[in-house]
Design a protein around this nucleic acid. Structure first.
Lengths: 196, 196
DNA sequence: ACCTGAACACCGTTCAAGT
DNA sequence: ACCTGAACACCGTTCAAGT
């Protein structure tokens, strides 16, 4: 006599994503997820391979959502400067809206809990397009890495409440974007910035 | 009949710091630390308040060590440009030498496991001094945050093996330092860069 | 004064037994 | 075909009992 499913892989993932923000990664236990979808912990293994895989799926879904936000905020038609400002703002909005998911994406744990490289690569495409417009093909990857590193570092520190010396954090974030745009626009000759 | 100590708070911390690099934060269990210092786990509580406090002490010690390295690499007498290059290199060396400690410092977990704000503030003083020399007092904090965010983001990503699109990671790190130095030197008028 | 085994409240995961 | 309780191997932490 087959027993009908009382839940599903998608419902388990959705419950996990909600719990992640509500109680943090450490509180995302199989028992808590199970309680939320209305079964006992062992039943989850019929829908998901295990906790690490569940975390990885949540991370992957978050990266894809973030990628869509970046694409919308830094669209093909925008100037490179506007694209970088938009991308920075989209990253900050995501970090504030879903801080735990942001941490999962940008300060990942063990490999088994990470978003897929494909999803991650795809998500940063709009940034790469913008830096290509500013510094040229040859330096576009280096510039994209500089931008992504700055944004992820800044927002990780902001979420961790690591800015404890006063000042205006939002203004300092904008200072950072403008500094990078300036640097990419004034790329030194000899490095290929103007002449490549 | 008093029993003589078979270990000490310092020995416990040293064993914990070694274990952290060898087996990672998740492997840093009270039982593993106890085995290394030659007692059973419950005895550790005579020397350390608990696991979180032990992790916090390791993090604090790492921040202080890093602060000394920054002071040596970006000394008072150096030009701001050389100080920022030196600070960046010191951060990268530390990240490579003690990756787990670096992660502990720059992507901390719960508050109870963190380095003290005093130690953290003190560690970044050389960076603040360098940015002050480049952008002036008023923007020195914003510039220091931009630099620190970039470095911590870049190195966290490098340690997490998040740069999977090829390219030369070391060269891209140097690209980042030079870009920031350029941006800080060419601060736009009206923002106080040249005229403040 | 420190060390110990036993115990408690948790984890993730496996598995035989139910329906 | 899915759900369940029981069990296993782990955690951190507490505590009475040893020396």
């Amino acid at each position: 006599v087959p027993a009908p499913s009382r839940t599903s892989p998608d419902a388990v993932m959705a419950a996990g994503a909600d719990l992640l923000e509500e109680v943090g990664l450490a509180g995302l236990t199989m028992q808590a997820v199970a309680a939320r979808v209305g079964v006992r912990a062992p039943s989850l293994y019929k829908h998901v391979p295990g906790r690490d895989a569940l975390v990885a799926r949540i991370a992957d879904s978050a990266v894809r959502t973030l990628g869509e936000a970046l694409e919308a905020a830094a669209p093909e038609g925008a100037t490179p400067e506007e694209a970088l400002r938009g991308a920075a703002q989209a990253l900050r909005s995501f970090a504030h809206a879903r801080p735990a998911a942001f941490r999962l994406v940008f300060t990942p744990g063990p490999d088994a809990t990470r978003a897929s490289p494909e999803s991650s690569t795809r998500a940063v495409a709009p940034v790469l397009r913008a830096t290509r417009g500013l510094v040229g093909e040859r330096q576009s990857l280096a510039a994209a890495r500089t931008f992504t590193a700055w944004a992820s570092g800044f927002l990780s520190m902001e979420l961790a409440d690591a800015f404890r010396m006063g000042g205006d954090v939002e203004e300092d974030f904008r200072f950072g974007v403008e500094a990078l745009i300036r640097a990419f626009s004034h790329g030194g000759p000899g490095r290929g910035g103007w002449t490549a």
